[in-house]
């Protein structure tokens, strides 16, 4: 495939797809900021039912933080191997990243089921509403990331090459962003509980 678009202007030389993902992620920052601010405003106004301090434990989210941070390392290695011309290693690391993402989602589901068992539901109080919404939207982003990584690693694998690493780099940008959002959520929701 020929280069996506010739860069006509000398001032800014960056692949247009990469810039597009950066700009999209900038927009996503405001989306998650809106959700996190809503959480901060509301989570202490519980009138009945469990509060953040009562309902949340640190075990699963801490493991999940480790998992996501490790997955970012795997993503970096996937890109590095592709640039070195080692496509098979790159795909293996991409699959590792996706697998870690799936592990995160499974643990998140376990955590949710524990909450539900203990009576914390989205409708029990404002803390429940805000908690499930913030973490749910993040989990949905992780799920989208897993699907995206799998379609690059499996569906588009023949297109991957050291010259055409932008497919991995763009999904990598998204994945690292979703990681960073988790770090923010981990601090705001779990550590500050």
């Amino acid at each position: 495939m020929a280069s996506h678009h010739p860069v006509a202007s000398a001032e800014i030389a960056v692949d247009s797809r990469k810039l597009g993902v950066w700009v999209f992620l900038a927009s996503e920052v405001i989306f998650f900021a809106s959700l996190i601010v809503s959480y901060l405003v509301l989570h202490n106004r519980v009138t009945s039912g469990p509060t953040a301090h009562e309902a949340l434990t640190l075990t699963i989210p801490t493991i999940n933080t480790m998992i996501l941070l490790t997955s970012s390392v795997a993503m970096v290695l996937a890109l590095a191997h592709l640039r070195d011309g080692n496509r098979r290693a790159s795909i293996a690391w991409l699959l590792t990243t996706a697998w870690l993402g799936i592990c995160f989602l499974i643990l998140k589901a376990v955590e949710y089921s524990q909450h539900l068992h203990e009576g914390l539901t989205p409708s029990v109080n404002v803390f429940g509403s805000a908690y499930y919404t913030v973490t749910g939207f993040h989990a949905a982003h992780v799920a989208v990331g897993v699907i995206w990584i799998l379609s690059v690693a499996l569906g588009l694998r023949r297109r991957l090459s050291p010259q055409n690493d932008v497919l991995v780099e763009t999904v990598g940008l998204y994945w690292h962003f979703v990681d960073l959002v988790w770090v923010a959520i981990f601090m705001v929701v779990y550590l500050l509980r």
Binding site: A26, I30, S34, S38, S123, V126, G128, S129, A130, T133
Partner: peptide, 25 residues
């Protein structure tokens, strides 16, 4: 648009959840 639209987008999601999932935003 990129920095303003996500704010209403988040608000609309919260409103939709309030209406259909019984949340209390």
């Amino acid at each position: 648009i990129l920095f303003a639209m996500p704010s209403i987008s988040a608000a609309l999601f919260l409103l939709f959840l309030d209406r259909h999932l019984g949340t209390h935003f």
